[in-house]
Nucleic acid binder design. Structure first.
Lengths: 189, 189
DNA sequence: CGGATTCTGGAACGAACGCTACAAAATTCG
DNA sequence: CGAATTTTGTAGCGTTCGTTCCAGAATCCG
């Protein structure tokens, strides 16, 4: 063996997530990252490869800690229809509380880097499809009609809320976006 | 008077729009712009100010030529409900034909630059609200119930479609997002 | 302890960034 | 034709970019 790392890789990765989340991929410099992560440039390249690889790791960590955690938590605590409603409500609350309008790293990446990087684009599309699958699963369980289309619709509504939130939309607008979608949950087979 | 410009300002502006549209604000360099516009750097700074001012002009031109043109054209050619349906259908068709996934400059800017630039953020929010007003106007004319919320909902759905299109979504998904929203047009007062 | 291996800070790389300075070229007016 | 004014190409400004190199520090195995 040899010398041990002096920093916690996961903790540093969390700092990298915050950087990419707040500023986007292009606008985040390697120096921004090393400063926030509290490590030197050599350590960053030694531990993660390069900026792009670090971004891919950050994306994965964000998906695990934000999206998948939320899905698991809501699905465990609520019945199907309530889980969907709670998901949208939680996103709206977080968006309104989000003073610096970071939005969602997945959505930001979908517009920022996905179109210019096929590999990362596929990863992002896969994460978004996990959200759609969550909707689909719970729509089926609640015997909602047209679950296939409605799950796509709910994903679209979610993404729309995220975009509007980044332009500083108010609560009334965001809830207006969501409410007609929630009404669909009452259309049973 | 003095020496005349050797280039067409509007034509050059169209080239700038294409650059920002395809690559985003940060990822577009001044050299990318001068190359695409066919002018030297001095001419660019002389005619438009700086990169940010050129972006603001590009945004305005895009809004006039893409969004407002579409709204005026569809509103002139269709009855209210058909105008809304045609708007969504046209966005889906364009998104599917858009091989390099440029999406919509307004939506891209809403995530890319709006959160980091308050002035441009307000401009983008204003353009998005013009789209919502188009929905609202036509919902009212068609006596659709809950026009206020439904107009917000349609805007959200539109933005969601734009985001999904940038990750390479297929026709079935995009139409699935739109269809439940279109069904709302049949809920009369 | 000594050799092997890995991690770290600091300096520096070439390239690209947004932008400006400057002088030559082009135009209008007297 | 000049004087005045604006546009143009070129060159270069200082800064920052992502990345690499390297010597030294730290750790494990024998």
């Amino acid at each position: 063996m040899a010398r041990l790392k002096e920093f916690d890789e996961d903790r540093a990765l969390d700092a990298a997530v915050d950087c990419f989340w707040a500023r986007g991929y292009e606008a985040t410099s390697v120096r921004d990252l090393t400063d926030a992560m509290g490590i030197g440039g050599a350590s960053l390249y030694n531990a993660y490869g390069d900026k792009r690889a670090l971004f891919a790791r950050s994306l994965e960590r964000y998906a695990n800690r934000s999206m998948r955690e939320r899905i698991a938590r809501l699905e465990a605590a609520h019945r199907p229809k309530e889980a969907i409603a709670a998901f949208l409500a939680e996103i709206i609350e977080r968006s309104l509380k989000d003073r610096d309008r970071k939005g969602c790293l997945l959505v930001n990446s979908a517009l920022d880097v996905a179109p210019h990087d096929a590999a990362i684009g596929k990863v992002v599309a896969g994460y978004l499809d996990e959200i759609r699958a969550f909707f689909r699963r719970n729509l089926d369980a609640a015997h909602v009609a047209n679950a296939d289309e409605v799950s796509a619709h709910l994903l679209g509504v979610l993404l729309g809320i995220r975009v509007l939130a980044r332009t500083g939309a108010r609560r009334k607008l965001l809830e207006g976006v969501a409410r007609p979608a929630l009404a669909l949950l009452e259309t049973h087979q």
